[in-house]
């Protein structure tokens, strides 16, 4: 183990971490912005309308992020009309391609999450809103969406972590994110063990940070559910607290 190599390259890692954070935050914002209309349309009662966002969600959830990223980064070069257009400024850059791929991907996952949460809205809430004379759009904005967001919060925490982990793929297409930084350190000094281990450590720290943030968010937005907390074990909390109640019996 050669810790000095890592210490010497800390600035590079920090730079990479900054790119990682940027990519994750930007793609999450873009993805969420896309996910809300996606989920809204996917819950439509008209089958033909609901089909399209569902097909989108099915495609992006059913295929690997790596392939999606390659399709956008390597794949778009196939189309001459795109290369000749002004859009090529965006598609020739690895950074933008990665960002587009991540945003489209997380939009699909988040959209599905929200769709499920919207579908589960207690009918009483909608009925009450109707009784107040709220229009459809007001109902969605004031009642359905906030309530669905609360229900989707724990699984959204997992999605954020998945996005962080998925963002490491950016290092594959020449972007110097945290993983890219580790690749550079490895290439310069040939210390695969130390370089990737350090990257793993930083990713772990970021993951734990996200977990912590979501725990605070959940205590805040789920405060109204607190007295009934003992009813069931929270799903999707990460890392799952081990509950070795069963342990005494052994296996």
């Amino acid at each position: 183990m050669d810790v000095n190599v890592i210490l010497e390259n800390i600035p590079l890692y920090i730079e990479g971490m900054w790119v990682t954070v940027q990519l994750v935050v930007l793609s999450l914002i873009l993805g969420l912005a896309l996910a809300v209309p996606l989920a809204l349309v996917a819950t439509s009662r008209r089958r033909f309308i609901a089909f399209w966002p569902r097909a989108y969600i099915y495609f992006f959830r059913g295929t690997p992020l790596l392939v999606q990223m390659f399709m956008i980064y390597h794949g778009t070069a196939q189309f001459d009309w795109l290369k000749d257009s002004a859009l090529w400024v965006v598609f020739k850059e690895a950074y933008w391609c990665a960002l587009i791929a991540f945003a489209l991907n997380t939009a699909a996952y988040t959209g599905e999450m929200l769709r499920g949460a919207i579908a589960q809205t207690p009918f009483g809430e909608v009925e009450a809103a109707r009784a107040y004379g709220m229009s459809r759009w007001t109902r969605f904005r004031r009642i359905i969406l906030p309530s669905a967001c609360r229900r989707a919060l724990p699984s959204y925490g997992n999605e954020v972590i998945f996005m962080l982990h998925g963002s490491a793929l950016a290092g594959v297409i020449t972007i110097v994110d945290l993983f890219g930084a580790a690749k550079i350190v490895n290439a310069r000094h040939f210390v695969p063990f130390e370089s990737f281990m350090a990257a793993g450590f930083f990713y772990l720290c970021l993951t734990l940070l996200i977990v912590w943030i979501f725990r605070i968010a959940e205590t805040h937005w789920h405060a109204y559910m607190r007295p009934r907390e003992e009813e069931g074990e929270e799903k999707g909390s990460f890392p799952a607290r081990s509950a070795p109640a069963y342990a005494a019996k052994g296996l």
């Binding site: 982990h165 998925g166 793929l169 993983f179 580790a182 990737f196 793993g200 990713y203």
Partner: peptide, 8 residues
């Protein structure tokens, strides 16, 4: 679960 699969 805290480290990306690619890094591992």
């Amino acid at each position: 679960r805290g480290v990306p699969d690619l890094v591992l």
